[in-house]
Nucleic acid binder design. Structure first.
Lengths: 222, 222
DNA sequence: CTAAGATTCAAACAATCGTTTGACACTCGC
DNA sequence: GCGAGTGTCAAACGATTGTTTGAATCTTAG
């Protein structure tokens, strides 16, 4: 928007203390990109906004990541590698420990993501980036996520399939699609919602419990 | 992306037969914008893509709508005026008819939107635009939707409140937030998902029933 | 028919986009 | 100390962005 008074050329505040040399250039770019992608979307956030917030030269993005699209992929990879490892570990722990329940499988999926949205630096922003990726039906991004993390979804789908044997495959996938969308959406708002009289940590624990019960009820419906 | 072989300068096909003079310039712009916003997002779809798909001169957007942002608002207004009127009418019909149930209130909310995603021209695209608006936390857009359609959400919230008296206000709003997010997300995928052996209309009816049962179970949980 | 208004049009506006370049500073092993 | 690699930097690249302009064309009332 060329004309029209106030441009967002200024500091783009609130991105975080990414300036000091405690973090490498690459990490500072990833952190700033995460926050700004969450705030303005992938197309809406420019590399100049990102590099400015990261206190880094504009050319650094193409030097370290090659292109904007590759930067987007790396923003996902940085978090998802660990997130999905934790999810699979939690699922396998739930499998060994007594018998599998819908609630324990859902917890294995949700809790690691919710931990991200907590004390971690920028993790809350990433959860919102994830929600954006859900809404965008960007084909290249979906391909990337499918290639790198498809096995995680398959593991969870088979666990759900064991617990809901009366549902045929199509119905199961349809319900999982809704549940994963609802969970992603809900998690994206976890950082925003406030509650009186409880710490953010307590709030998150309460919210996770409700969310899991909510999703389990939906999956079991009828 | 200046460099890199194939540019999307070409026809942007599949937007629909908006060319003939059966529709006014304004309507053709709105229709093309709807499809392209659903496909590429608000920031991702350019006015040149929109006017090209609408077979309209570039300047027509600023002439008829003033700005891109106002065009976005009008894309919403065109559908939401009727959609929310139908929702309120369905809710009031459910109120008079015998006693209110969770399922009937949910149906009043979902069915009009699902009808949109059906036979209507471009309605399916709009449902996906709606899902995008949910994921984006764009403040100006949220303000616009709140100003113009806040009363609809308030009516539904109070109906849900009557049906779920054991939930305090915060818990109710929290659940409605998740449910509306899940519904929006699910409806956005209605146009995509295919099912064997049934017509699209039958599929939609089946899906709506399941979706409502799913959401009702979640709202009633615990 | 004609003057006035409403649209459409090609062309240009300045701003911003992602990307590239070449000079400059740095850290190493030798 | 010296050259090789590794980052950083300001500056520019062409392409594309939303918006504006002024003339051309259409529509419509007097």
């Amino acid at each position: 928007m060329p004309t029209g008074g106030l441009h967002a050329q200024e500091h783009e505040s609130g991105v975080g203390i990414l300036s000091p040399e405690l973090f490498s250039t690459k990490q500072r770019i990833l952190g700033a990109a995460e926050v700004l992608f969450a705030r303005h979307g992938f197309a809406g956030a420019s590399l100049r906004q990102v590099t400015s917030a990261a206190h880094v030269n504009l050319a650094a993005v193409n030097y370290h990541f090659g292109s904007k699209e590759n930067l987007i992929n790396e923003v996902f990879r940085r978090r998802l590698d660990e997130l999905n490892a934790q999810r699979l570990q939690a699922l396998s722990a739930a499998r060994t420990r007594s018998s599998l329940t819908l609630e324990s499988v859902l917890a294995a999926f949700v809790r690691p993501a919710l931990a991200l949205s907590g004390d971690d630096h920028g993790g809350a922003a990433f959860v919102r980036v994830l929600a954006r990726a859900y809404a965008e039906h960007n084909e290249r991004l979906r391909q990337f996520l499918h290639d790198h993390y498809g096995h995680v979804l398959r593991q969870f789908a088979s666990a759900f399939g064991e617990l809901l044997p009366h549902l045929d495959k199509q119905e199961l996938y349809w319900r999982l699609d809704i549940v994963s969308g609802a969970l992603t959406y809900a998690m994206a708002d976890f950082g925003v919602i406030k509650r009186r009289g409880v710490t953010p940590e307590q709030h998150r624990d309460i919210a996770v419990d409700h969310l899991i019960k909510f999703a389990a009820a939906g999956l079991r419906a009828e």
